[in-house]
Design a binder for these strands. Structure first.
Lengths: 234, 234
DNA sequence: AAAATTAAACGTTAATTTGACATATATTAA
DNA sequence: TTAATATATGTCAAATTAACGTTTAATTTT
């Protein structure tokens, strides 16, 4: 049985994939090898298949590009402007993902002509992908101000200065290092390791590890990690 | 031109419409007059038309049921389970709306066999509408803890005790009235009127009005209106 | 070998906000 | 005139925050 007299529409799923290389927040984009807009960059995406739900499609698309499974992946929002795709009307459900930039499969991304771009230097994107990226940036800032999601972007072990730099890149601002470390340490999410990173100072900075148990348990807690976060939401 | 070899899918838009009658948080639902699931209740919705975008469809659907325009209406999330609609695969984009319950057009809602249900006593809903309502409740609690959205549910003038009751209904908990009023007054969003509401006490309670200018300006500010809001997010 | 250098780590303080609780007030009903 | 009561305002210790200052551990320079 089917509904009568209704219009069926293409449904696409696009992923906004964030990474952090220690210096900058990056976005994983692919270069189109086909018309329209050959050579322009776009988010990784695909059409929703008849046998998969939205979350599955998003996981598939992320997996196809990065080889990664079980990483942070959350529905962002849906876009349905009439003319957003010049070829044919398409409703697009976007997801945003945070991955450890060192863990993706370079061979796969290469075959997609994919590359990482600094969030501050994004190339020309197709369709309404700029809008999608902007929404994702806002959501990242919003959510990271309240919940410890940015740990998803870090390697297993990291130092407090590295962590602070990550937050500073996300909010494009400087934080007081004394207040920052106090705040983050007070979450109880960090476990100090014996080892030090000596690459960026003589003294070295202790490595920390995320307490994954507490992370999962307290993920929903409201942490006020950033003072006046609304300042950074454009 | 069209994309080749892709499956087109029905796209629906459903609205979760909240109201507040002074006593309880209510949800506006319609009773189905057709199969499948005749007589069961559902959210107000409709299929996305070829000439409208998602926001327009949501506005249309809200308008068709309530006669209201320019009220609080925000995209919630999209649902795409394969079997969510037994008739035919349908991806559904949900919106949630906060309206002044005294302003809707009763004639229209009557013609839809619509009715308001206490959030604590929701009838049997079709498809995955329970899931949608739950997501909407969580988002309402989440957002109301940070931003003054609940004013959207109130009439032009209201008292502090009424406002407190609204918050207590949303979070299904009691707040300390002294701390609550201090917190809400400190937002600077309330303008005291000369008049009193005498309906619920001998002394009467002063009416207040929302400062709409400040409301719009500071809407994005993070207010911490609720202590430990994560306790209420299930 | 001693001194200089520097990021990292730890500390201080006043101001603000919070949570828990107490009291005063305006009005009506008894 | 008094009792009753929701409303309004007040108190205070504890916790949190914002804005700074100082010490430490290691390397590099002298």
């Amino acid at each position: 049985m089917q509904y009568q007299g209704q219009t069926r529409i293409l449904v696409a799923v696009d992923c906004i994939i964030f990474g952090f290389d220690g210096e900058e927040i990056k976005l994983l984009l692919i270069q189109r090898g086909f018309e329209p807009r050959v050579r322009d960059w776009s988010l990784m995406g695909g059409f929703l298949k008849p046998d998969e739900n939205l979350d599955e499609a998003a996981s598939r698309i992320l997996y196809e590009l990065t080889g990664l499974k079980e990483v942070y992946l959350e529905q962002l929002m849906s876009f349905g402007q009439l003319d957003r795709d010049p070829v044919e009307r398409t409703v697009c459900v976007t997801y945003f993902s945070l991955i450890n930039i060192h863990k993706y499969e370079k061979q796969i991304t290469d075959s997609f002509h994919a590359d990482w771009f600094s969030i501050n230097n994004i190339p020309r994107l197709i369709f309404d992908h700029v809008k999608m990226v902007n929404e994702a940036k806002i959501k990242l800032r919003y959510k990271a101000a309240l919940h410890p999601i940015l740990f998803e972007l870090l390697p297993e072990k990291f130092t407090i200065p590295q962590l602070q730099n990550l937050y500073q890149q996300v909010y494009d601002t400087e934080f007081d290092n004394r207040n920052f470390s106090r705040k983050l340490l007070s979450t109880g999410l960090l476990m100090k390791l014996g080892e030090k990173d000596k690459s960026s100072s003589k003294k070295g900075a202790f490595y920390y590890q995320l307490d994954k148990e507490k992370y999962k348990q307290n993920f929903q807690a409201f942490l006020n990690l950033i003072p006046n976060p609304d300042k950074f939401l454009l």
